[in-house]
Design a protein around this nucleic acid. Structure first.
Length: 300
DNA sequence: TGCCGACGGTAGTGGCCTTC
DNA sequence: GAAGGCCACTACCGTCGGCA
């Protein structure tokens, strides 16, 4: 894991310095796949009982079991991964996602292979996989939304009028900020796309809605949120099945009464969120559609 | 000025409880 | 039994203050 850790730190450093680190992310994935293929067992775990049933696999090694993953979306073969990356890059370069299946497979594989390695060999490191997801998608966005027309940040300053201006030294304004994962701002129109990036939302689903509510209040009509996740699954070791942890009722309430998100974007879309009664309230689609939707909003 | 530890906020996950 | 929600736990990360 030392090599993977070192590569990850280098990728994060580049990303924090506003430099895309896609090549570094691919390199990390190659290292992860090699380690998983040689030092772990990739095997069937169980099914999610839905309509249809979905098969999930896990990585087993070092006395640990990884989170469940969808084998048909995960490219474990290195040569196949290299071919998929070429297709992914071509679609990125052309600004045209013509093969969404391969596009989403690459995203799923890059993020999941890193997650599986951490689950097996560094299970106590909870936050790192989420940070890697952010670095990868952030790097994609840095290429797709280049400066100076677009600006990428992680915070949106909220400037509030202070009722008693005399109580403040400069006598004017006091600031705070909304801390998000990724914000892309069109520097001409000042419109912004907020992209909360989560491997899974669980009970933190309220966060993007709360952020959008604050932004609607502070800057009406200026920001839209695009919640982007990998999946919503949890192992059930007792029954060796996989559960999709969904909260459709809560999301519906938030969407109706708290604030409106522009969409939920998944690699592995939870079946409950794909149902017509739910998608009538909020757009739920694959990650491949994320960029076109943001393009429409940012007038790219 | 730079190092280092404390601290708080945030993120991810398993397990358990309640409700239907 | 499934869905939905809460809790506990661990770790990362940025900030701040103390200290040399």
């Amino acid at each position: 894991m030392q090599t993977i850790d070192r590569l990850f730190q280098a990728a994060k450093q580049r990303y924090d310095a506003s430099q895309p680190s896609l090549a570094e992310c691919y390199e990390i994935t190659r290292a992860c796949l090699t380690k998983l293929n040689t030092e772990a067992t990739l095997r069937r775990f169980g099914e999610f009982r839905g309509a249809p049933n979905l098969e999930y696999w896990v990585a087993e090694g070092n006395g640990n079991l990884s989170r469940p993953y969808r084998p048909e979306m995960f490219i474990s073969d290195l040569a196949e991964f290299e071919r998929a990356v070429v297709s992914f890059q071509d679609q990125m370069d052309d600004d045209d996602i013509t093969d969404p299946v391969t596009f989403e497979k690459v995203v799923y594989t890059v993020v999941s292979s890193f997650c599986l390695c951490y689950d097996v060999w560094k299970p106590k490191s909870r936050k790192t996989p989420g940070t890697f997801f952010e670095v990868f998608i952030g790097s994609v966005c840095q290429i797709r939304y280049p400066q100076p027309r677009f600006q990428m940040t992680k915070h949106i300053p909220i400037v509030v009028e202070v009722p008693d201006a005399d109580a403040v030294d400069d006598g004017a304004l006091q600031g705070n900020s909304v801390s998000t994962d990724l914000v892309i701002t069109n520097t001409v129109t000042q419109q912004g796309a907020v992209i909360p990036l989560k491997i899974t939302t669980r009970e933190r689903i309220v966060q993007p809605f709360a952020h959008q509510r604050i932004l609607d209040s502070a800057y009406p009509g200026r920001y839209r949120s695009y919640l982007t996740c990998i999946s919503e699954v949890q192992r059930d070791d007792k029954t060796t099945t996989v559960k999709q942890i969904c909260v459709p009722g809560t999301v519906a309430l938030f969407q109706k009464h708290l604030s409106e998100l522009s969409g939920l974007y998944y690699c592995d879309i939870p079946q409950r969120y794909a149902r017509q009664d739910f998608t009538a309230l909020i757009r739920v689609t694959g990650i491949a559609n994320l960029f076109d939707d943001i393009d429409d909003w940012l007038n790219r």
